[in-house]
Simulated assay, not measured.
Amino acid sequence: MSTYRLRHSFLARIFVLAMLVSLATGSISLLRVQTTEASSGHFKPPRPDFAFNMVPSSPNINGCLPHASGFVTITRGSQNDLMHVSVRGLVPNTGYDLFVIQVPNKPFGVAWYQSDLETDRYGNGSVFVQGIFNSETFTITNEAPLAFTHQFHLGLWFNDPQVPFDQGCEPGQTSPTITPFNGEQHAGIQVLNTANFPDNAGPLSHVNP
């Protein structure tokens, strides 16, 4: 190979290497810019408009799940709301069912099935639900006596009735209590609710549309 061709090949390799270094440096710089922007708050999600706790539904739940708790945030949107429900201290690797309800305790009144929620191996879990979750949340029918009914509370039920029974959450019972609060109408007892708010002024009533 001639000296000219050797020199040309060498220079070509140097040029390609320089381009690769330049691209890599540019990518690293871009990554740094994005990281800096994220850390400076440019990509922070909207701040929730209202936040509240869910509490154990009964002394029996306090006894069998002493660390059970829930935390809810609601963020208003232009057309609907985003609700985030997170739970702690529940039975691990277990399914639950989330409802918007008229009153937090029995007989619960009008209830609206919102979402499933699954806990991890630590008994923690969370779910996002999108809909109308504010002071205008209601059910309507043309049939009396249910003409117009607000639902301002939340309730969370065990999906499998056997789970709370096996956990000792139903002392004195000889068999699991079965409730209609899942898609098959064969759920367990309620584990968390919003009885920390008055029956007629549940947390959703504090969220302006």
Rank of each mutant, 00 (worst) to 15 (best):
L117F: 03
E118T: 11
T119A: 00
D120S: 02
D120V: 07
R121D: 14
R121F: 11
N124K: 00
G125T: 06
V127S: 07
V127I: 09
F128M: 07
F128R: 09
V129T: 05
Q130T: 08
Q130P: 00
G131H: 11
G131V: 03
G131E: 07
F133V: 06
E136T: 15
T137M: 04
F138D: 12
T139I: 12
I140A: 15
I140N: 13
T141V: 08
A144M: 11
P145K: 13
L146K: 10
L146G: 00
F148T: 08
F148N: 09
T149Y: 02
T149L: 09
H150I: 00
Q151W: 06
Q151M: 07
F152P: 02
F152Q: 01
F152Y: 10
L154V: 00
F158V: 03
N159F: 09
N159E: 10
P161Y: 04
P164V: 04
F165D: 10
F165Y: 09
D166H: 14
Q167W: 11
G168P: 04
G172Y: 07
Q173I: 04
Q173W: 11
T174N: 15
P176Q: 15
P176D: 11
T177H: 09
I178L: 15
I178V: 14
T179F: 03
T179P: 05
P180I: 12
P180L: 05
N182S: 09
G183S: 12
H186L: 01
H186Q: 14
H186E: 13
H186F: 15
A187F: 00
G188C: 01
G188N: 04
I189D: 03
T194C: 02
A195I: 14
F197S: 00
F197I: 04
N200W: 08
N200T: 04
P203Q: 03
P203H: 10
L204F: 12
L204P: 10
